[in-house]
Nucleic acid binder design. Structure first.
Ligand SMILES: [Zn+2]
Ligand SMILES: [Zn+2]
Ligand SMILES: [Zn+2]
Ligand SMILES: [Zn+2]
Lengths: 161, 161
DNA sequence: TGATTGATGTTATGTTATTACGTCTCAGCC
DNA sequence: GGCTGAGACGTAATAACATAACATCAATCA
């Protein structure tokens, strides 16, 4: 299985890390946010891997790179990036992944392949959202939604046969 | 979708625990499953509380009742109940809650009030499911879905004013 | 200058979950 | 009866995930 899928397709990975970091940098400057070295490096790590990483995986990499070696170092950077939409947490995996569609405000849905561990981020249509409908009928006001599905990705389905 | 999710309304709780346990008992006998004392007691505990409980909360109660005191005791019972649809795990809370609509196969959606901690289980319409649509367009085969929303429940919205 | 804020680091601890292994029971079979 | 395999339950030990509390430093600003 491809160790490098975005969504479930192959792609040229060589430039997208730098581009995404650059975009985040610009976005932070505009918003008055500090994309500090640890934070930037954390984002790079997630982009390079292009898959969901646990906080301790990230921490190990940061530590190798000369940053602090204690859990709060990773958790704080991940919190910042998550809070500002550059990274998402996959609740089902207790893991983090770089946003595949940064910039726009969105409610992502994740498709998690239990065979190859790939994670794809799909966009949802807010107006037709299942949860929005439920919220409307029940009078519940949603602030954040978690949409995750486990299953088998197209690649793994194909190779099963 | 269920227009009347259990969770945000008061209701007479006195009989529903016994009824639900009875139903589970019957269902297990029919399916050739063993609803053993620990498993039954675990289900009772979750039904009595009628809210999401952590595995260690459940464990403490089981231990008080003379069952084992080590984590696997709770996790194994919860795994059994979850696997067979009597209990759901709320990923966002790392907690477990008794199913509000047992018996039918379903993909529940949870509404989690961050103000009062109430959790409501709403039914979803599989055919119109957001994730089902995504799966169709991407070729991903879903085996399990996690649908959870955090926000404010109708009761808390009302008392905010 | 002194106060405030926000970022980073550390130590220590808390919370959630699993692995590994021994025992018991019961059903199926000789 | 005695053997065997499967499944349930118990324990000890450990792994994996996450936060609290506190010290330091730099930038900002009255
Ligand atoms: Zn995203
Ligand atoms: Zn796959
Ligand atoms: Zn349910
Ligand atoms: Zn509430």
């Amino acid at each position: 299985m491809d160790p490098n899928p975005i969504g479930f397709q192959h792609h040229d990975h060589s430039h997208c890390v730098a581009d995404a970091v650059e975009a985040a940098d610009r976005s932070c400057r505009e918003a008055g946010l500090q994309l500090t070295p640890v934070r930037k490096r954390t984002l790079e790590i997630l982009l390079e891997e292009h898959r969901a990483l646990g906080a301790y995986d990230v921490l190990a990499r940061l530590s190798e790179d000369g940053f602090g070696s204690q859990p709060p170092v990773a958790y704080r950077a991940l919190d910042f990036l998550t809070k500002h939409g550059f990274v998402h947490k996959i609740e089902k995996l207790n893991a983090f992944i770089a946003c595949a569609h940064p910039g726009e405000l969105h409610t992502p849905a994740f498709l998690i392949c239990t065979s190859c561990q790939a994670v794809a981020e799909a966009e949802t249509d807010p107006s037709h959202s299942l949860l929005a409908n439920i919220a409307e009928t029940t009078g519940f006001r949603i602030s954040r939604a978690v949409l995750e599905a486990e299953g088998t990705c197209p690649n793994c389905l194909a190779s099963e046969k």
